[in-house]
């Protein structure tokens, strides 16, 4: 008889614990749902904080970083002497490989008309090192900017680059405005 009572008591404790846990889970779910967002927010880096330290190229969990150089064409000066494209002390003023700045050759250019050139970034080659961004910012308009290319980003729970970013430029952004580009919003608002 003693054991039956013990068995019943255990059953009772289990049931009440179950109810307690269930209620706790429900409380967490309801409490947090009130201030949740529908979809996942996305990681992005603020170009105005970025110092082009080169961390993006090495800290991303992907072997080739999801951070890419984005060319805000509206801000480009279309220069012949592009400091983001050419090394600043080239042997000769031509586009031979040893004169180019990009270590992976991801920037290509095409002649438009005297004296303007169009610059394009081959995204698959870009590793987000920011060398071109640094020089474009120092000498030119800063039309080359580092951004997380969202289709490349795995949207880790905690971004590995954000953890080591010296200027803490990374944050989660709303999926309605997934890019923080200088000189890009104004264009969008115009049309």
């Amino acid at each position: 008889m003693d054991n039956t009572r013990k068995f019943k008591r255990r059953e009772f404790i289990n049931t009440s614990l179950r109810l307690g846990i269930g209620a706790g889970l429900g409380a967490i779910a309801i409490g947090l749902t009130t201030r949740s967002v529908e979809g996942k927010t996305l990681w992005q880096l603020d170009t105005s904080k970025c110092v082009q330290c080169g961390n993006c190229a090495i800290s991303c969990v992907k072997q080739v970083s999801a951070v890419k150089c984005i060319h805000v064409t509206d801000m480009c000066g279309y220069c012949d002497l592009c400091s983001g494209y050419l090394r600043s002390n080239p042997k000769d003023l031509n586009t031979a490989a040893e004169n180019r700045l990009c270590p992976t050759g991801a920037i290509s250019r095409h002649f438009i008309e005297e004296p303007y050139f169009e610059y394009k970034i081959t995204e698959e080659l870009c590793n987000g090192c920011g060398k071109c961004v640094k020089n474009c910012g120092a000498f030119g308009n800063g039309s080359l900017q580092l951004q997380i290319q969202q289709d490349q980003c795995l949207n880790c729970n905690q971004c590995a680059i954000a953890r080591t970013c010296p200027s803490q430029a990374f944050s989660r952004v709303d999926r309605d405005s997934p890019y923080i580009l200088k000189g890009f919003e104004s264009k969008k608002s115009k049309g």
Partner: peptide, 25 residues
């Protein structure tokens, strides 16, 4: 912040910024 965009005689149009689209929630 505006930048003096060059005026192209050849009718060249500035290409769009290459940013990828977001997968809907």
């Amino acid at each position: 912040q505006r930048f003096p965009k060059p005026e192209f005689d050849s009718g060249y149009k500035t290409p769009a910024v290459q940013v990828s689209k977001i997968q809907p929630a």
